[in-house]
Design a binder for these strands. Structure first.
Length: 280
DNA sequence: CGGCAAACCTGCGAGC
DNA sequence: TGCTCGCAGGTTTGCC
């Protein structure tokens, strides 16, 4: 899955081929995604013109004519792949195909089916159940140390788990939380409410920087993420701590064989990676 | 409300 | 080769 940078990479790839095009043919091969595919999914979309391909948090937000909005979430393993038209049968995990009026095929593929496709209306988008509780976009100027401080106030959970809560800030996932906390030199074990203004002043720019750099790299490709072209992102080569248990952290000169290097712990049921020497 | 485990589903690598 | 186990970019639900 895709976190914000991966979804943004996919959004950009889709925008190039979809914006201004009309959907000539839509085929749904199975309806049982995380949420059932909407009734009359293909018929509703067929013939409609796509205006813009946007993003909110980890959701793709595709605006079509007449105020119809298609929401897409890639879950853990979802992909949107762009190709020329083919007449081959869909792959085992290809669930939906969208063909445009100029001969482009977009295939939604998701082996684990944790992703979803849903309809919304433009005029009530912010109130849609999937979007209404989302916190601020971390790359917008409004996402400031002060705003994050308010969101974290009173939270006795760890800062790691708090940053994964999409209601507090929207778009971070397991990779970029570990990476941002490393950059800000803050221990993932700290209580959310315990961060000082000074620390929040490091954390917010760290979040913005790591997301921005990851978007520029086309996201991180560990197992599933692909750009719409099928190419790999390459930000995984820039990880400081994620998936690097036992290795030396880039800021430490200490010998990982002696200090244990980067630690892996479990918080909220998910792996956290950090350097105990640099993060407190 | 908070916190945590389990659930959803498939695939892959490690270890035996 | 083949089995089991643990783990995976997410989110929701149910229980205490």
């Amino acid at each position: 899955m895709p976190e914000l940078p991966e979804v943004e990479t996919v959004r950009r790839g889709l925008a190039v081929v979809l914006e201004g095009r009309r959907l000539a043919r839509v085929e749904a091969f199975r309806p049982d995604l995380r949420l059932p595919l909407p009734e009359h999914f293909a018929e509703t979309l067929t013939g409609r013109r796509i205006e813009t391909v946007g993003r909110r948090a980890k959701y793709l937000v595709i605006d079509l004519e007449d105020g119809l909005v298609l929401l897409g979430h890639l879950g853990m393993s979802g992909r949107m792949l762009v190709s020329g038209l083919v007449n081959t049968p869909p792959g085992k995990h290809d669930h939906v195909r969208f063909a445009t009026d100029d001969g482009t095929l977009v295939t939604y593929c998701d082996p684990r089916r944790f992703g979803l496709l849903a309809f919304a209306r433009r005029e009530s988008l912010a109130e849609h159940p999937l979007l209404r509780d989302l916190g601020p976009e971390p790359l917008e100027d409004a996402f400031s140390p002060k705003l994050l401080g308010v969101a974290l106030a009173g939270k006795q959970t760890s800062i790691k788990v708090a940053l994964l809560d999409q209601r507090l800030v929207a778009g971070l996932g397991n990779i970029y939380v570990s990476e941002a906390l490393f950059r800000a030199a803050i221990s993932p074990l700290r209580t959310a409410a315990s961060l000082t203004p000074r620390e929040l002043g490091r954390l917010v720019p760290a979040i913005k920087a790591v997301l921005t750099e990851a978007i520029a790299a086309g996201g991180s490709s560990l197992r599933d993420h692909r750009q719409t072209s099928g190419e790999l992102g390459y930000f995984q080569h820039s990880f400081a701590v994620y998936d690097r248990e036992g290795q030396a952290c880039p800021g430490c000169r200490c010998d990982p064989a002696r200090t244990g290097g980067i630690q892996r712990i479990v918080q909220g049921g998910r792996s956290t990676f950090y350097c105990a020497k640099q993060q407190s």
